[in-house]
Simulated scan of single mutants.
Amino acid sequence: MAQIIENISHLDSQELLSLAADPERGAIFIDVREPEEYEAAHIPGIPLIPMGEIIDLIERLDRDREYVFVCRSGRRSLEVAIFFSANGFEKVHNYLGGMLQWQLEERKVAHGREHITEQFTLDQLERKITP
């Protein structure tokens, strides 16, 4: 069961993977780190929208969807989740421990710019995690 920290749901790795495997929920996963961090290692299938850019895109996102945010340790992604929650998004989660936790558990990572794009479109968020 997800932990609630600072009024935000925090998912562990198993909860994150379970949510990703549930097509009914249609959750969107977003890595909010900087491009160089993402290139070094990221969860396969999760697109990047850096924290500094996501604020400008919030009005283009569907408030009825469920969102999970990922960063290096879970702190920046928590700040993004808090921001989304304060702006009318009710179904937001933070990945507890971030990429540090993912790699500590020796889970699969991808490297490079596979889901970094120069121009944002909503369909880029429909990617799925590949465990």
Rank of each mutant, 00 (worst) to 15 (best):
F84A: 01
V92D: 04
L96H: 01
G26M: 13
Y38F: 12
Q101L: 03
L19A: 08
I58H: 04
M1G: 15
H93G: 01
V92I: 10
Q3N: 10
I43L: 08
L61W: 11
E105G: 06
F69K: 09
L104C: 04
E37S: 14
D62V: 07
E79Q: 15
R76Y: 09
I8M: 07
R33D: 04
K108T: 14
E114Q: 13
I129N: 05
R76S: 03
I5M: 02
E53R: 14
D64R: 11
L19M: 14
L57Q: 14
G112Q: 01
Y67M: 12
Y38P: 00
I55L: 14
E37V: 11
L104W: 04
G26L: 11
T117F: 12
A110N: 10
E66G: 06
R75Y: 04
L57G: 04
A2G: 02
M51V: 07
D12R: 10
V109F: 03
I55Q: 14
D64Y: 02
L16C: 13
I54S: 13
V70W: 07
D123I: 02
A41E: 13
Y95V: 01
S18N: 15
P47R: 04
Y38W: 13
G26P: 12
E34A: 13
D64A: 14
V68F: 06
C71H: 01
Q119A: 15
P47F: 04
G45A: 15
A110M: 11
S9L: 09
E36F: 05
A20H: 12
L104Q: 13
M1H: 08
V68M: 13
G98N: 06
L96G: 00
A40M: 03
A21V: 07
R33T: 11
R113Y: 09
I8W: 03
D22Y: 03
H115V: 08
D12E: 08
L61C: 05
E39R: 12
A81H: 05
F89G: 05
E106P: 00
S73Y: 00
